[in-house]
Write a protein that binds this DNA or RNA. Structure first.
Lengths: 232, 232
DNA sequence: GACGGGGCTGGAACGCCGTTCCAATGTCCA
DNA sequence: TGGACATTGGAACGGCGTTCCAGCCCCGTC
């Protein structure tokens, strides 16, 4: 009772790390963060879980590799602006749009930002800070602020996408925002006067516009402190 | 072979949601994010997994409840400063310190920030923005920027704590930072000139100081745009 | 004092996960 | 022609979150 059947005739397309990562991205995009499973991945690749492990160390590495592909694509597409500020905006928006299109990367961006290719993003942003005239001693601080903000927005967007999908998979984003705005509007006036007051702004806001407004706020703060007013 | 033994004589301390959440926090603080398990929790509470489910809906709710306790404690301890800016600093630092002491909350802060008690944090920050003179139409944007930054730093700190613990559980934080700085310093000079240049600043920096510097940068940007220069 | 129902308990079991193991296979070179 | 070896994929392991449910204790009722 022990012989195992074997029916492969040398797959026409052999497994490879590249093909595995590609399939993982498809799975993540269609089924969400929880959809990436070695079994599901094996089925999609018409193989078994064991075969995947010959090409990939484990799930963490697979997720990191998938995130890297998305971020690398986003960076390749990021336009170079006319001014340092516009270039920074473009880089930040490229990350924002990548998270928007693939919410599952949101949580992982922070995982190892000192590693490629997020490192490449911040290298490019850093150079623009230099071009903006931020002195060397302040560059780390300035970049850290931008980094936290960009990764924070990414994490929030990912969390929102998850919450929206979990709450009611059918609804679209504006329904979700409206429900949240309704929540805020019906808070206790004594305890949450401020939050109640901005409920309508939550309802009407555009995530992308708010994101770039935040970038501009931070760049304003940076240039006001460290860069000549002409530089921005 | 079917009778089950029953040896309880009505526990002296009955289970309760409060006791469960408390035990969960202890587990998370001592064993890390991965240490929270219904089995481990049951053992610590001298019961079985099933009993816990009578008081708590599931793991997500448990984690949220645990996070809420930590954040609520932090808020209760946050000092009220002399100026709006100082009060905002104090609130932000309270969140920062809470993440520092309990890294496992970092990732969950973003999960449902439109819910209590993170909502309470941002309500309080929002009121200070009002006191700062930020006009109503800009309050949502200003608060969003601060929110993304604060949650982003939290997520980054949590990720760093995780990475540090994973890489070498024995090392302390400065060893970890030094290793990262060494990494940066040994990058390709052509590809990463900027990152190489700030490696020594990474080595010497203080997370908490950098965090509050970022808060100040954002507040500068906000006040420069919207608030009278006297207000800050 | 008997008793019955419901709040509460906790151990067993289910299905799924990441991961490991390894017999079987295809390929290639001596 | 026959090994060595890279590669495959199914089975199995341990652990997870969760569900199920038999049993216990307490309390109200008669």
């Amino acid at each position: 009772m022990a012989t195992r059947t074997r029916r492969t005739e040398r797959r026409e397309k052999p497994l490879s790390r590249e093909r595995i990562v590609e399939a993982a991205i498809e799975l993540l995009d269609t089924a969400g963060e929880g959809g990436l499973t070695f079994r599901a991945l094996a089925e999609r690749l018409a193989t078994g879980p064991g075969a995947i492990y010959w090409h990939v160390a484990g799930k963490d590495e697979l997720l990191t590799a998938a995130t890297d592909v998305i971020v690398a694509e986003a960076m390749a597409a990021a336009p170079s602006g006319a001014t340092p500020r516009e270039t920074i905006r473009g880089l930040a928006l490229a990350v924002f749009d990548a998270v928007d299109g693939h919410p599952w990367i949101g949580g992982d961006l922070s995982r190892a930002p000192a590693r490629s290719p997020m490192l490449r993003v911040f290298e490019r942003i850093g150079r623009q800070l230099q071009a903006l005239g931020v002195p060397h001693a302040a560059q780390f601080t300035a970049l850290s602020a931008l980094q936290s903000y960009i990764l924070g927005t990414g994490g929030l967007n990912a969390a929102n996408a998850r919450a929206q999908h979990q709450r009611d998979p059918g609804t679209d984003r504006s329904d979700f925002i409206n429900a949240a705005a309704d929540d805020w509007a019906s808070l206790d006036p004594d305890e949450y006067p401020f939050t109640r007051g901005i409920a309508e702004q939550l309802r009407a806001h555009d995530d992308r516009v708010e994101f770039v407004a935040g970038i501009d706020i931070i760049l304003d703060g940076i240039t006001a402190r460290w860069a000549p007013p002409v530089g921005g």
